[in-house]
Design a protein around this nucleic acid. Structure first.
Lengths: 193, 193
DNA sequence: TCTCACTTTACGAACGTTCGTAAGTTATGA
DNA sequence: TCATAACTTACGAACGTTCGTAAAGTGAGA
């Protein structure tokens, strides 16, 4: 399917150079065609971008939902650390997550609204699941705290900081160490002791 | 000084639209001149960008260094929380920090090397100071831990996650709550108890 | 099985626009 | 008078997009 090849190339260049920095010529050349041919598959640059965005959203969301459906939820330490590992894993082997991250935080101005809607949609879903898990753990006295919202937001913060470190990512040793540091302190911050 | 006005406008557009998305025409118009007049002050787009970058770096660095020189260092809880407040404050009233953040993580490809050098320079300095503070606090048994590196990196992670939330920033209530959540969990994670 | 109409895909050429950049000219102020 | 800074005008290159056209693929009817 040529459309998918185009989307793959577009994903790559949008991720590397941002919306404005990516050109249809580059994308077309990567696929082995002229930029005009892209218009046989997509209405234009915006249309192509939004298709890539929705694919990325689906990947991001389904990966995370799947993770939560698989865990037994009786071991918060394992479950949460596993989620961090999942995020790192996705980031490293899946260009879509990098794309998603970049566009979440620095969207092209004229598409900001459309992007925001998708971002908020995912965010709410993930946060809701996470919050219910934390509530279970609190009720089961596996972690401390009265409301589930606090550890949830703190954990999402850890996820963000790890993602940022991965984006920045020139020192792999530092990445590992920073992940461990953030995780250790976070876990001590919510664990019973 | 017209050069400064140009840099101010450039800062604004580089921050909003990124390097590729910002145009010299827009910048010139903001200042009230033609884009060709910019060349009376700067060699070109790259030159203007690098000037803005260096100004931003200086602001970022001097603000943080000044903070550390002012604190008494005997109260880690107050000192660290104060640093978070400083970062938020800087971010909200100073466009340069937003610019700095965007360019740190998503630099224009052909200037990535130059930008990286500056970013690493600041990062190392801030980390070094922070690490020595943490070491003092550990020695004084004000916080737990054997090595200072772990709480340092974890704290830098908290800073990053807060910055990201500010960049994203459509829900101010959520921002405050997330800051409190990240901070509370972090502090409990390193505090003696 | 062959043909005819239709759709899909690709591309050369060109559109209008904007980009960053340059040279030459005019006004301002020391 | 002599810089300096802003202006006007201009340029090649690249941008996203459109048009017309040609080739390739598809399905139906005879």
């Amino acid at each position: 399917m040529k459309s998918n090849e185009i989307k793959d190339a577009a994903l790559k260049y949008f991720t590397m150079h941002g919306y404005e920095g990516a050109t249809l010529s580059q994308i077309a050349e990567e696929v082995g065609m002229k930029k005009q041919s892209i218009y046989a598959h997509f209405k234009g640059k915006d249309d192509l971008f939004l298709h890539v965005l929705r694919d990325a959203k689906e990947t991001e969301l389904s990966s995370k939902l799947q993770y939560f459906s698989e865990i037994d939820s009786q071991n918060p330490e394992k479950d949460l650390y596993g989620f961090l590992q999942l995020v790192i894993d996705l980031f490293q082997k899946n260009e879509q997550i990098k794309f998603w991250l970049r566009m979440s935080f620095f969207p092209p101005a004229h598409l900001a609204k459309a992007i925001d809607k998708e971002v908020i949609d995912i965010e709410e879903k993930v946060q809701a699941i996470l919050e219910s898990k934390f509530q279970d753990w609190i009720d089961a006295k596996l972690i401390v705290g009265d409301t589930a919202k606090m550890p949830t937001l703190a954990f999402l913060g850890v996820v963000d900081s790890i993602l940022l470190e991965l984006v920045y990512g020139n020192d792999e040793e530092r990445q590992k160490y920073k992940l461990e540091a953030s995780w250790s302190v976070f876990w001590r911050g919510i664990a019973r002791h």
